[in-house]
Write a protein that binds this DNA or RNA. Structure first.
Lengths: 365, 365
DNA sequence: TTGAAAGCGTTACCAT
DNA sequence: ATGGTAACGCTTTCAA
């Protein structure tokens, strides 16, 4: 690999001049030309490592998510990515894979690599809740934010994080409230919430929103119910089965997120139970799959792309240096009810579906 | 940010000793203890950049894919990720977003960041085909492989890449052949292949496989047909409409990949055309969505996770230093026919579905 | 086992 | 506008 000295020598100028040329500082035109040629000849690429050593700037930011294979995070990442690319940052993505250890590991790696900013979607798994583990994770992040030159933004509804970092989130309570109310308004009384562990702030808020709606409709007998469990499709599938066994009177289920709702929906489909006539299904998030399954899944949409984009903007605000806001700022983005086939009104005959635009570009390799 | 000198000073030893301690070399026990304490106190993290400057080793490898939001690549990445993590490498993922410019940009970034290895799923879009653009992309990669200390592996069926780099791929011709034969065997004669541009090696091979099967069945009148187009769901949706208009006699369509097939399937669903009774639908790849939609999509599965994992192994073989194989090695992985509801045999009544295990863990935040 | 000092490739400062 | 040179934080000789 050629270095800046090789280029300088070949161009017959000093390294300082080459350095200036690289960074776009004024250089005499004839020199510029020779240097450009030398760079091309030698296939020279400035080492970010060496540069960072002196400037503290790498032009790289990182994002850590629990699971890239999850459509929700993919969209968040795309928004983040687009925002930062517009500011000439490169973005690298790392996976925490649902493992607290790996989360701290990859964060550490990114920091040591010299990322200027770090966007984190923290784990909210059973292993990482409330407890000491989470507090120490937060302390570590705080040290990174304070001591290092690494800005931090967290995408979460989790309070401890919101108190310490710039965060972006949605109002999960409201989302679940709207979802439940929609089910009630369309004639379902026996609504059951599915999945998630209430120890997680995000889950608790959603369950709260559900309870609130039920109580408002005078259905307090239901208001305390909840089938807790994992937050993936398999969990939704199993929970749906259990609910049907234990509460055959149920006329609607509300997945704590789309994955759970999709699992429930799949169970119903597999057992030839009419959706939404016998059981209506509703999710929260609006991941890409919700628009692919038939019947399409009703849900309360989180603006995933915007969440990522906003996280990027917060990061840039801190990275830019200049006028930093002092307190941690918490950006709350609005959700939106999406009524689809899985909760269509009961008496009404099924109208000709007007397909939504398909999303998510396809594999092209 | 504390550096190694701060630690040395606080521990009252030399930087050399600290350095040895960090790297696990023998240090007198009492010293080890003081150093450990100092590191903890100062929250010291060795700078990868500084280390890389002298060792040329960053412990980081990168992967570049066209689109993270695509389930196919997510799975490939997971396999790659798992393989490298087992060898204590950190993995960073970058998105080329379908844009040739951005592809070269992110590759460049990764290299300059000092990744020791680079796994690439190259663009195969219209913009990046056969032409000069592709050749120059390949040349760039070759220089990286040669001059730098960066190993390269490419995941592709594209010949020019296979000649120059370690590659991992599947036999797309065979896959399409198997898919088509399955359709023919189950009583469909009028099979139409959908999507993709034949200029892409991968697409051409798949179309070839289709042709071969049609010819073997004496259906050469169909053997030359192909509805070319994009490789995403929208394209599949539109192409399905077009086929139905121009060839209402069609009894089956073969998407050049699952996304196209899914688009076709959605069109049929939206227009209340019976699947598979009126039109059977088949894809190639087996992305996660294929198991979610109803009817479930029949397809020929690419071992996505294994593809990524194998790419990781090839990279490690080059990175490890020692005994490098000399020629470019091309690992060809087997595909597998997955018969699902979208192609069930015609006369047969619909059996009780035995659900496959659900896959892809869910959002847990 | 330890410490001193010479790099690694780049930028930034200071003369010129 | 240019060139010389001291950092930057780490590893790696080489002596002790």
């Amino acid at each position: 690999m050629a270095n800046i000295y090789d280029v300088a020598q070949r161009a017959d100028v000093s390294v300082a001049t080459v350095s200036r040329y690289i960074r776009g500082q004024p250089v005499r035109p004839d020199n510029a030309e020779v240097i450009a040629q030398a760079i091309a000849d030698l296939d020279y690429r400035p080492s970010i490592a060496a540069r960072a050593l002196v400037t503290k700037r790498t032009g790289v930011v990182g994002m850590v998510v629990p699971n890239i294979a999850n459509a929700f995070y993919s969209e968040v990442f795309r928004g983040f990515h687009d925002c930062l690319l517009a500011d000439n940052y490169q973005v690298i993505l790392a996976n925490s894979d649902g493992l607290p250890n790996q989360e701290t590991q990859v964060i550490d790696s990114l920091v040591r690599l010299g990322v200027e900013g770090l966007a984190l979607v923290p784990l909210a798994s059973e292993a990482a809740l409330g407890s000491e583990a989470q507090r120490s994770a937060i302390r570590r992040l705080q040290r990174i934010q304070t001591s290092g030159s690494t800005a931090v933004v967290v995408i979460t509804e989790c309070l401890p994080y919101q108190e310490a970092f710039d965060t972006v989130s949605v109002d999960g309570r409201e989302a679940a409230y709207v979802a439940t109310r929609h089910l009630l308004r369309t004639g379902r009384e026996h609504v059951m919430p599915l999945g998630g562990h209430p120890e997680a702030d995000a889950v608790r808020r959603r369950i709260d929103g559900y309870h609130q709606a039920m109580i408002e409709y005078g259905l307090s007998s239901y208001s305390l119910r909840h089938y807790p469990g994992g937050m993936d499709r398999e969990s939704g599938y199993r929970l749906m089965e259990k609910v049907l066994r234990e509460h055959p009177e149920v006329t609607a289920v509300l997945g704590v997120n789309d994955q759970v709702a999709l699992g429930a929906l799949m169970f119903l489909e597999d057992h030839a139970i009419q959706i939404p006539e016998q059981v209506a299904v509703m999710g929260i998030d609006d991941v890409a799959e919700a628009r692919i399954v038939r019947p399409r899944l009703s849900t309360v949409a989180q603006p995933q792309y915007e969440i990522g984009y906003e996280a990027g903007r917060l990061l840039l605000a801190r990275t830019g240096g200049e006028e930093e806001p002092d307190g941690p700022i918490c950006r709350m983005l609005p959700t939106r009810l999406k009524v689809r086939e899985s909760t269509w009104e009961l008496p009404q005959s099924v109208p000709e579906p007007k397909p939504e635009p398909l999303s998510s570009p396809g594999r092209d390799g």
